[in-house]
């Protein structure tokens, strides 16, 4: 209990990134994740890293691209409108297979929307917000400690597959404080690789690019990407179940919203309803097969989200009984109350 610190989600992922060996942070201020830029600006100084307040999110993600090219651990973060601006850069990172970590502290949209918590960037994160056939590994933590844990490990996962990892949070998780234990500082010396761009001393020149002209060259490249995505799909899957063994009513939810549902499950059980919760922790890869098994004998599946119904599409695709799936959610920054979830699900 001794090493606990009380921090908000935004500081949690900032410090966890630094502990995880990230020494390059590029970002642009946006609510509700403004704690990040101010924290990084002083913390990077302390650890001998680089913080740069970029002129835009477009520049931020491209600076991350430059740092990642050299084999360094680099990240950026933003909230929904800023993440939209980064989609071009994310597509290039994916094409060039550069490991990088991007945190999205979601707010209400579309457009400038508002600054209230939301989960309406599920499609963007999971289905590919930029152009082309690519995937991101998407973690949806639901506690501040999980924010720490998944951010910390995201760099090595990104490097393992040469993929981009997105930490998908929302304004609530970014702003709320909880006690956390931070892991040890990683001594990261840079990736030793056969692809990083460092100057060609003692070796043949290297090229990192995303333009693949010539017949079939891009198709071959894409096939290679798909193969590694398949590998990630098999090994990086994470999910959590709560009281699902005898559940007749199954709630599905991700991120902060899953915590409301966990409370709802307890209240429903007090009312005699055998409720349970299935929470995907990785939104991509989506734990569809696991959900299929858990959902097989339930009478009712309720997907709860802070959007107009996005993950519910994957839930319907995953289960054998999609007609049993219903959706409950609030959009535009509204937060579904536990009592309303209980009322809907019982």
């Amino acid at each position: 209990m001794k090493n606990k610190e009380l921090v908000c989600g935004n500081i949690a992922f900032s410090e966890a990134a630094i502990r995880g060996g990230c020494r390059y942070y590029y970002g642009y201020p946006i609510t509700p994740q403004n704690e990040v830029t101010s924290y990084m600006s002083s913390r990077m100084d302390e650890v001998g890293g680089v913080f740069l307040q970029a002129e835009s999110e477009i520049a931020s993600i491209n600076m991350v691209f430059g740092a990642a090219l050299t084999g360094a651990r680099a990240m950026t973060s933003s909230s929904s409108p800023g993440i939209s601006l980064m989609q071009e850069g994310i597509s290039y990172l994916a094409a060039c297979e550069l490991p990088a970590v991007i945190a999205n502290v979601m707010r209400g949209g579309p457009g400038l929307g508002n600054i209230a918590p939301a989960q309406s960037d599920y499609f963007q994160a999971v289905k590919g917000g930029g152009h082309g056939d690519y995937r991101l590994i998407v973690y949806a933590p639901s506690t501040v400690q999980e924010v720490v844990d998944y951010t910390y490990k995201s760099f090595s996962v990104a490097e393992k597959y040469r993929m981009q990892v997105m930490i998908l949070m929302d304004g609530l998780l970014g702003q709320m404080m909880e006690p956390v234990v931070f892991p040890e500082m990683v001594e990261f010396k840079g990736i030793k690789s056969d692809w990083s761009i460092t100057g060609c001393k003692g070796r043949a020149p290297r090229l990192v690019r995303s333009l693949f002209l010539g017949r079939g060259v891009l198709e071959d490249h894409n096939k290679k990407l798909q193969e590694k995505y398949k590998k990630a799909e098999e090994t990086e899957l994470k999910y959590e179940t709560y009281k699902t063994e005898d559940a007749e009513v199954l709630l599905t939810s991700f991120g902060i919203c899953a915590r409301f549902c966990r409370k709802a499950v307890d209240l429903l059980r007090e009312k005699g309803v055998a409720a349970g919760l299935f929470r995907p922790v990785t939104l991509w890869p989506f734990p569809g097969d696991k959900l299929f098994k858990v959902a097989e004998n339930v009478k009712k599946i309720v997907c709860v989200e802070m959007n107009a119904g996005q993950m519910v599409e994957d839930v319907r695709l995953s289960v054998s009984n999609p007609e049993k799936v219903s959706f409950f959610g609030r959009t535009g920054g509204g937060i579904p109350s536990v009592s309303k979830i209980v009322e809907f699900a019982k």
Binding site: Y24, Y26, V50, L52, A54, I58, A59, S60, N62, M63, V64, F65, G66, A67, A68, L69, T70, A72, A74, I197
Partner: peptide
Amino acid sequence: AVATGIKRA
């Protein structure tokens, strides 16, 4: 921006 990222690293 890419050059900035490289040069800073």
